[in-house]
Amino acid sequence: MTRPDNGRFAVPESRADRRDPAADGAADRPAPVARPAPARVDPLAGARCVLLDFDGPLCRFFAGPPGGPASLAPGFADELRTLLDELPDLRARLAPLPDPHEVYRRTTAALRHGGQPEHPVVAAMRKRLDELELAAAGATAVPTPGAAGLLARLADRGVLLGVASNNSEPAIRVFLERARLARWFEDGPVVGRPDDAGLMKPDPTVLQGALAYWPVRPDACVLVGDSPADAAAAAAAGVAFCGYHREPEKRRLLRELPGAPPAVAALAELAPAGRVAVT
């Protein structure tokens, strides 16, 4: 573009002469202010007591040994099914299940439905599951990363701590001692699998047994768990639920449960440093 000079000839327009209409008034506008990211809400804030499921939040209970299978659970389930040799139809129905707890639970339910709640296989399966869990607790189970730190932070807040689990209580206590976590539960309940498989979570019996240990209202407590059964038990007991799982898809499923509970990928996300007085 050129400009006339006294009408005689044209000279090139300089860059300084060019104006950007959109820039007019830009100097008068305030510079954008960076907004801080919203603070993450602590799902355990204000809780007087926190109950933890055992397998998941506190340990990888069925972790396999080095050089072995990634999980011992399918092998444990297979071993429980060997007790069903005299009940081949039931054994065939339970063949696809990789979870020993589900094999035990569904065996008990099927025999109860068939009018045989005291069938010898129920007691035999309970005993064998206890033995398998005790062995895993003493040898192969590994602590969940961040579990010790979370317990320490909660204890520093004055929060009451307990365990509410479908695993056997003796196995839980053996692992807590082995992993040096037992001291956090010296003044709290450790409630494990009931003798009646029908009272395992999602039934609230395990949570109610733990809550009876303290003179606190259920709505002052939070359960940290990793499964829909944990969430259902918490809801039935009137306890808030906070999900934990390492796998994104499992966290998504937990967040889509009724009430849209929170679900975290790491225990380090829970109970940041600070103290909440318990009265």
Rank of each mutant, 00 (worst) to 15 (best):
P12T: 09
A141V: 14
A70F: 10
F54T: 04
A237I: 13
A63L: 15
A263N: 02
E131F: 04
R246K: 05
A260K: 03
A109F: 07
G114Y: 01
A137P: 02
L160C: 09
K250S: 11
A16M: 08
A273C: 05
A235T: 15
Y104P: 00
Y104L: 15
R40Y: 05
E177Q: 09
H101F: 14
R178F: 10
A136K: 05
A268W: 07
A136M: 14
A237Q: 06
D78H: 08
P272F: 14
V216R: 10
V224P: 00
V103I: 15
R183A: 15
K201R: 07
A234G: 04
P262V: 09
P218A: 12
G115P: 04
P65K: 00
G25H: 11
A210S: 01
A26E: 04
L111T: 02
P261W: 13
N166Q: 03
E177F: 02
A152Y: 04
G56I: 09
Y244G: 01
V224I: 11
L270P: 00
A277G: 05
P32F: 13
A139H: 08
K127N: 05
A268Q: 03
A266V: 05
A124Y: 01
A139P: 00
P4A: 15
L253N: 02
P43G: 08
A212C: 07
K250I: 01
